[in-house]
Amino acid sequence: MQLLRIELYKIFKRPRTYISFGIITAITFVIQLAMLSDGKSFIGFALQGINEQFDIHGNILNGYLVAYIILQSLLIHIPLLVALVAGDMLAGEANIGTLRLLLTRPVRRSQLVLAKFYASFIYTVLLIIWLAFIALFLSLLLFGKGDMINLKSDAFVMLLQSDILWRYAMAFVFAVLAMTTIASMSLLLSAFADNSIGPIISTMGIVVVLTILSNLELPLFNLIKPYLFTTHIIGWKGFFDDPVPYSAILRSSAILVLYTIAFITTTIIYFNKKDIRS
C-alpha cells in the first residue's frame, strides 16, 4: 500500500504523465475539428455502399459516432501512452539509477513489481476516464445526440440513441482491461531493459505488428489470430454490435486477463532473479 502510494506519487509528480493526457486531448480535438469541418464528406464516403440503396437522413454525424471514430483511432495510440508510463516503470528507474537505491530497501521485489503494476493500472484507468470524458461528452456537446451507425466490413449497424450510453460504459471498461494488458506487457519489457525507450518502442512495435497480423486476411494468420491479444483488445467494439456478441467478448476478456497474469508473473519471476548492475 505504501509502495503503491509512492509509485502513484512518482507518476503524478512527473510532467511526462500529463503529456499523455495532453496527447489524448489534442488528438481528440483534431478529430473533432476535422469532423466539424469535413465530417459530411467523410460520412458520405463511409456510407457509399449504403447510400446506393438507402437514403439516410438526420444527424448522422452526432456525438456518439464522433466518439466512436475517436476511440477507433485513439485506441491505436493509447498503447503508446500506456507504454510511456508502464514501460518506464522499471527501466526508467534503472536508467536514472534510483532502482538501485529502491532495491536496497527492505522491500520485496515482487511487491515492487505489483505496486508498479497497480500504479500503471490506475494511470490507465484515469487515462481512459479522461478519454471517455473528452471523446464522448465533448463530442456530444459539439455534435449533439442521435442514433449511431456503426459500419462493419460486412454489416451496417444502427443503434438507437437511447440504447448507446451503456454500450460506451461497457466499452470503456473493456478498454481499461485491454490497456491493462498492454501495461503489463510494457512492464515486462521494462524489466528487461535499462532504459525506457526500449520498452516503449518494443511495446508499440509488438502492438503494431500484431495488429497488422490480426487484420490480415490470410489463412496462415487466421490460425494464430485467436491467440493474439491484439485480436482481442478491440473487443470493446463488440458492444456496438447488435446483438452484442457477449460470448466472444467474454472469451476475449478471459484471454486478455490470462495474458495480463502471464505478463505480470513472468515479470515477477524474471525481476526476482535479476542482477541489478545499472
Binding site: 512518482k10 509528480k13 510532467p15 536514472i96 539509477g97 534510483t98 538501485r100 537505491l101
Partner: peptide, 14 residues
C-alpha cells in the same frame, strides 16, 4: 543497512 551505490541517483523531478 543504508547505502549509496556508485552515483547517489535520486528522482530529479522531486
Amino acid at each position: 543497512i543504508g547505502a549509496i551505490i556508485e552515483r547517489p541517483d535520486m528522482y530529479g523531478y522531486l
